[in-house]
Simulated scan of single mutants.
Amino acid sequence: MRYHNITKDDMLNGEGLRAVLWVSGCDHGCKGCHNSITWDPSGGIPFDAAAEKELFEAIDHDYISGVTLSGGDPLFMGNRQEMTALTKNIKERFPNKNIWLYTGYRWEEINTLPIMEYVDVLVDGRFVEDLKSAKLHWRGSSNQRIINVQKSLKNGSLYLYHAE
């Protein structure tokens, strides 16, 4: 897996102050994507032990609510195995932090993936430029949903996330 950046104090990509991992690789090709530089799976730099240490140090502060995984697409086929291992590791090391994941895939396509066991909130669906609005919170276009993953998995139906 490769990545482009680790943001250490983000307030736009999920609730609270967050660390964000921007991974490489996306095959959705959404028109108007704000981060098309991350589409190339061979772009960026390798996510190695030093990068993981940097991410964990960014998460390991009382004022950080959690981590957001974005990109590119964390669920790009070439990222799935490593992202699952990473989210499992984050949950084990930081059980009180939440994990948000942004993907162009729809919940119905990915809800059975093993990674979902570790994700708290999922923002799903491709970005649609014609549905873009600056008034939307935590998503780029109105077709995208903010999903409470654990409640959805537990109850077997989709539950949207509501900030507390």
Rank of each mutant, 00 (worst) to 15 (best):
H4R: 04
G16N: 08
G16D: 08
R18G: 04
R18L: 07
L21P: 03
D27K: 08
C30P: 01
C30E: 01
T38W: 02
W39Q: 01
G43Q: 09
G43C: 03
G44W: 05
P46Y: 00
D48K: 08
D48M: 06
D48F: 01
A50D: 15
H61I: 00
D62F: 11
I64A: 02
V67N: 04
V67H: 05
S70L: 11
D73M: 07
L75W: 04
M77N: 05
G78R: 10
N79C: 10
E82S: 11
E82V: 00
M83N: 09
T84K: 04
A85K: 15
I90P: 09
K91C: 11
K91M: 10
P95E: 06
N98S: 12
I99V: 15
W100G: 03
E108A: 12
N111W: 11
L113V: 05
Y118E: 08
D120I: 02
L122T: 06
L122R: 12
R126S: 13
F127M: 14
V128D: 14
D130S: 15
K132F: 12
A134E: 14
G140S: 13
G140F: 09
Q144P: 02
I146W: 07
I146F: 07
Q150G: 03
Q150W: 06
S152T: 12
K154Q: 15
L158G: 03
Y159R: 06
A163N: 07
E164A: 13
